[in-house]
């Protein structure tokens, strides 16, 4: 327990120092946004045991909402990000409300279909800029006080939000609600026989996960200054599953490690090998599922318990 606390403290200090040791802040922010996305996804998959194939819809659509509010309506960054998150939560209520009526593969297929639907809307709707997406989104000034143009300032804001989300998810899992969710994950029939309307608890997990995924997407678009179709497409849904599995589902820190690994590989390998990066990540994914199914952090935790 204490070792974990020290570990987190060291990581926190490292995160504070990173922009000063030559790492590109925009890369770090992208990494943090995807780590947030993976943590949100893990809340659903790891703690609720629901496999969604359409989570890019929340991430990407929130990015569009935020970018559109800023470019077309000159909304401030805080309100634009919050709106993106709220719209994602609303979308999650609809997706979740439909999908939780089914389990396993059928659940996954419904989320996949709805995810594709949102992609199509983003491609065709008049406000999304079609193939081009929304470009040139200014970061603006946070609450009229803090200009976000500097990458370092923006980095610390993203870091603070990431830490808040990370702690929030820990709290959710360890809350009275989290205990019920865990019981449902372990034995649905028994949870019903104890009087729990399990679908309502699952729906809440879905909405929370969608809202946090939206927050990650909104922030990501604010960092990069654009929202594009790649945020909302199927491969992004696949990537977040990969990040979560690679790092370790149902662990708190696993998705962060998974996201760091995948984003770093994409960043550095794409310069070296171009399009082959997708194939390399695919091979890593297969190796992970075949030989260390608990993911990196999951396997480490299992080793320590032994």
């Amino acid at each position: 327990m204490r070792a974990a606390a020290i570990g987190y403290l060291l990581l926190g200090l490292l995160a504070l120092a990173l922009p000063w040791v030559g790492l590109y802040p925009v890369f770090l922010m992208k990494l943090l946004c995807f780590a947030m996305f993976a943590c949100a996804y893990n809340l659903l998959l790891g703690f609720g045991r629901m496999l969604s194939f359409g989570h890019a819809a929340f991430f990407g659509f929130a990015a569009y909402v935020t970018s559109w509010l800023i470019t077309a309506h000159r909304v401030g960054p805080a309100a634009a990000v919050l709106s993106g998150m709220l719209v994602a939560a609303l979308l999650g209520t609809i997706f979740g409300g439909l999908a939780i009526r089914r389990r396993g593969i059928y659940f996954a297929m419904i989320t996949l279909a709805l995810g594709q639907l949102v992609y199509f809307v983003c491609l065709e709707a008049p406000f999304t800029g079609g193939e081009n997406g929304l470009q040139g989104v200014p970061r603006g000034t946070l609450l009229g006080l803090l200009p976000l143009r500097s990458d370092r300032v923006m980095y610390y804001l993203v870091l603070a939000i990431f830490v808040a989300v990370f702690l929030f998810i820990r709290r959710v899992v360890h809350s009275p609600y989290g205990h019920v969710l865990r019981a449902i994950r372990e034995n649905e029939a028994r949870a019903i026989s104890l009087g729990y309307d399990i679908n309502r608890y699952k729906l809440l997990a879905f909405i929370l996960s969608a809202a946090l995924a939206g927050l990650a997407g909104s922030l990501n678009s604010l960092v990069l200054g654009f929202a594009t179709l790649s945020d909302v497409q199927q491969s992004t849904s696949g990537e977040v599953i990969l990040m979560t599995l690679l790092g370790g589902t149902g662990t708190f820190f696993g998705p962060v490690v998974g996201a760091a690994l995948v984003v770093s590989l994409q960043e550095y390998l794409s310069d070296l090998v171009g399009g082959w990066v997708t194939a390399i990540i695919g091979v890593i994914f297969v190796a992970c599922v075949l030989s260390f199914r608990r993911g990196i952090i999951g396997e480490l935790a299992a080793l320590r318990r032994r």
Partner: peptide
């Protein structure tokens, strides 16, 4: 056992409360 007792509290949807409230 606590999962069964918990349902009678009003907090089963309270995702912001600490587990110590149980």
């Amino acid at each position: 056992v606590r999962i069964a007792l918990q349902r009678r509290l009003s907090s089963t949807f309270h995702f912001w409360k600490p587990a110590s409230s149980l």
